[in-house]
Design a protein around this nucleic acid. Structure first.
Lengths: 371, 371
DNA sequence: ATAAGTAAGTGCGGTGAACTAACTAATGTG
DNA sequence: CACATTAGTTAGTTCACCGCACTTACTTAT
């Protein structure tokens, strides 16, 4: 995916320069416009170097000069420079929903500019790849700006090179999706698991802090993504976050995976809808029960990782109330204060866009070092 | 701890050079002696640069020339250079045991050269700090070589600066242990939680692979350390790995922490000894039961992190047999194959030295970038 | 109105660490 | 014995950053 990786851990001056550019972009991205002098102070680089780097980025269009600020102080007034959010656009795709593939044109600030979607209609394997290409092509046509890259949140297990190792729903095994798309569109392509892009989206745009973050996506199934120490956790074989089939109740229902009582047998969206809609059922009680079970799964993870935030993403009407409360309570009951004191459990504010926005973050991080 | 950190993320040429030095040292450390030309090929640097770096390290004593290898091929025979394991020594301390503090002089290859220990005898607070200083001083006297640094595995929660936030056994709260020792001995000092140093020791010297590694230490209590993506996980507030007080059985025994059925109420070493020694008790059955409970705690963690290896460290006669088997089995029963396929569960081969050797790794990593 | 002070941003020469090119040295092979 | 091959060195180049000194453009004090 993206550029050819430099071999080994060799560090060139060029790398240092890219790193410093990222530092400045990151600052502009997170804190908004600033003068060159401000950037120098924030980065520790000299004003000279910052001027040079800013000049380079101006000529590439990534930043633009915004003139002097309104208030005035002593000395020469600064020239503010800011991220030129629409200098380049990003094509972001969300393949996680069962019935459709959706995508968006996103700018550098993470704002969704236009959307598009195609129906899956049972497409599988090669057909599904072609459908992705079609969706991507239509989105490419929706922007006039140069495209920085393409980010994809795909279901299933995805390796770091952007090859989908296994995605049952789309019947993909060892499908080099990033390579296929890069070949067709000739832009850097980044592919990751949908829960992983979701956690990136939440991490970058979801008002989350700096500690460990876990996003739990509840849809047809249950998946999770983790950001630890500021970067995405991939896991030994790229299968981190696969908590949907952790057994929560050995005496529970039979699961499609042949085990009994997997988390997914109680927590998936369709399953929750069915149970809470049954006549004569105490819906809050059901949600509390499921939330407790979720909390039991999460407690050991919270304790082991000393997480800062857990975010539930999915149908808010199911996840937001008693379920969230019960999960939160259970985690605190089952771990020490030192583990749970710094923990927040909440629902996502980004809604259905988490995956698509996270896919854009994949590109921002990969190409500009911003996130 | 160690050196003053450079401000911000600024990357100087100097940093690049240190990085490249580490690259070469790392290669020699892991693969043994090699010629300059070999190092150049392995690192991607040019022979010229490697020669220069090697020359520098020769003059500092970290590496030494070993002459030509036995077999001969075409061309000028290479001069092998190798890590000079005894050019510098490391003082490594293990404060995790309740009754004593132990320490060792360790060389750069991780070999324990001499040991020493002092009895705690109920020392607490400032007294305990002085005891650590005394132990360290005695170890400093046991080596003639320059001391690269001091590494300490301490019980309790330790922050990245080497301040012990909270260690009930020694009655330490916000005790700046690293700073205190650095002041007295004027060498770089690194302090980390004992479970964290243990996982570093295991990671570097325990024949473990490259994926995520978790070491579970069973002693008076239960703690864990995690290495993910090659580096130690600290957690939001430095409290990662605190799994001893995860509740495994809400109807279980009351724990000192005021909760009921914490993992420590069934898994601590004294507790296991007592239960298995009771007359008329089926010891293997007890161990299997506890192993199963441990497996239940670990399953969600394995699934979430896609770990590569779990290592149990502690009394082998208790942990090695039925307990390990039951934990292994339970994890596999309760997670998907994609999570558990790449997983190995085993006991540590480093025995009681894990913590002390890990403390040495702390110094190696901090000072030489080697691990 | 003029001078002094302050902060922003820019040429210019210097430095350190890596690079390329071209060498010498020491061996095996045809 | 010439020649290819590999190791290691010397000499000179490139690149990114730094410090210093400068200009520019503003506010504040006299």
């Amino acid at each position: 995916m993206g550029r050819p990786l430099r071999p080994q851990g060799k560090l060139l001056q060029e790398d240092a320069r890219r790193h410093h550019r990222s530092l400045l972009l990151q600052q502009l991205f997170r804190e908004g416009p600033a003068s060159r002098a401000d950037l120098a102070r924030a980065s520790g680089l000299t004003r000279v170097t910052v001027s040079d780097l800013v000049g380079e980025m101006l000529s590439e269009g990534f930043v633009s000069e915004l003139g002097a600020p309104a208030e005035s102080r002593v000395g020469k007034p600064p020239t503010l420079v800011g991220l030129a959010a629409d200098s380049h656009h990003i094509i972001a795709l969300d393949l996680s929903e069962t019935d459709r593939m959706s995508g968006a044109v996103v700018n550098l600030a993470g704002t969704v500019l236009s959307r598009h979607e195609v129906h899956v209609d049972g497409a599988e394997g090669e057909q599904a790849v072609e459908l992705v290409q079609q969706l991507a092509a239509e989105l490419m046509d929706m922007t006039e700006r140069p495209v920085l890259g393409m980010g994809v949140g795909s279901p299933g297990v995805v390796d770091t090179a952007g090859t989908v190792i296994d995605a049952p729903n789309l019947a993909w095994t060892d499908t080099p999706l990033a390579a296929r798309l890069a070949e067709v569109f000739d832009v850097p392509v980044f592919v990751a698991n949908d829960a992983n892009t979701a956690v990136l989206g939440e991490h970058t745009f979801g008002e989350s802090g700096d500690g460990g973050l876990m996003v739990i996506r509840v849809g047809t199934g249950v998946g999770a993504g983790l950001v630890l120490g500021g970067s995405l956790l991939h896991g030994h074989l790229g299968a981190s976050g696969e908590i949907g089939h952790v057994v929560v109740d050995p005496d529970g229902e039979r699961c499609a995976c042949s085990r009994t009582g997997c988390l997914e047998t109680v927590l998936s969206a369709p399953r929750l809808r069915r149970r809470t809609a049954e006549p004569g059922v105490d819906a809050p009680a059901v949600l509390t029960e499921v939330g407790t079970q979720l909390g039991e799964v999460l407690a050991p993870i919270v304790a082991a990782l000393n997480l800062h935030e857990i975010v539930l993403s999915g149908p808010a009407e199911l996840l937001g109330g008693p379920l969230l409360d019960a999960a939160d309570r259970t985690i605190r009951e089952r771990t020490m204060p030192v583990s749970s004191a710094g923990l927040t459990v909440r629902t996502s504010k980004l809604g259905d866009d988490v995956v698509v926005v996270g896919a854009a973050v994949l590109v921002l991080a990969g190409e500009l070092g911003v996130s």
